[in-house]
Amino acid sequence: MANIFLIEDEERVAAFIQKALEESSHKVSLCRDGAEAVKLFACNLYDLIILDISLPFLNGIEVCRHIRQKDKDIPILMLTALDSIDDKVKGLNTGADDYMVKPFHFKELLARIEALLRRKNTDSDNILTLGDITLNTYNNTIERAGRKITLTAKEYALLELLMRNSNKILTRQTIAQKVWGIDFDTGTNVVDVYMNYLRNKVEKGFTDKYIHTVIGKGYIFKTEPGN
């Protein structure tokens, strides 16, 4: 199951795609304007984006450009009524991974989505390095400035989530869902407790601090001040 962000302002088209994808066991978050899509992308995690070009407030090209500035890896499928070669080239040059023209067959859309998701999983780097921290997803090891750091499974999952979404604020609800696979309970402080565990192991004794609390919002991993 993938978490798909559908950005489409045509109500009937959006409803059709959402229903069909949910029946195919995917989770779908729907947005109908470009400006709102940019805001939602900044505070949520998605596996793939379906993006219409003709959107109110910000068009799909502008939205795609913004998303690519924040995340170079997330698959983006442009879905639009514009079918000229110039339109396709512009969309792909902006950062889209694939391009489909309306009207379309849902089976083909689903096949394109599955291909993009497979490619994303295949292309995932085994080695993730930010600042002086290196995370190896092949053997689940962590090093900082050449020093090995031992983490529990949940601490490792938490650090990987933060690093793969660097410079993006992650809410406690998002962290709880991704790391623990549970709906967030406001009566528990498990996220804050584990974040303290992680900080003690990853940052204690180092001058540079990468894990930051954003008051009233959540946490962010960043290696450069002010970003």
Rank of each mutant, 00 (worst) to 15 (best):
M195W: 00
V28I: 08
L128N: 15
Q173W: 01
N136C: 10
D83V: 07
L162R: 03
F206W: 07
I76C: 09
C43Y: 14
R199D: 02
N165R: 06
D97I: 04
C31Y: 02
I113H: 03
L92P: 05
V28S: 07
V191M: 01
S54C: 14
L158W: 00
A81G: 14
A145C: 13
I49F: 07
I17M: 07
G146I: 06
F16A: 12
F16P: 02
K148L: 10
L151M: 06
Q177Y: 11
R144H: 10
L170W: 04
G146H: 10
D183G: 13
K120F: 02
L135E: 08
K204T: 10
D192E: 12
G60D: 06
A14C: 11
T80P: 08
A111F: 10
N93H: 13
E23V: 00
I74R: 10
K217F: 08
D98N: 12
I49P: 01
L6A: 03
V89L: 13
N189T: 11
R164K: 15
S124Y: 05
I220P: 02
H105G: 05
K70V: 12
Q173I: 02
K90A: 10
Y197T: 00
L161G: 01
S84M: 10
I220A: 06
A37T: 04
S84N: 11
K120M: 01
T150G: 07
I182K: 13
Y197V: 00
V13P: 01
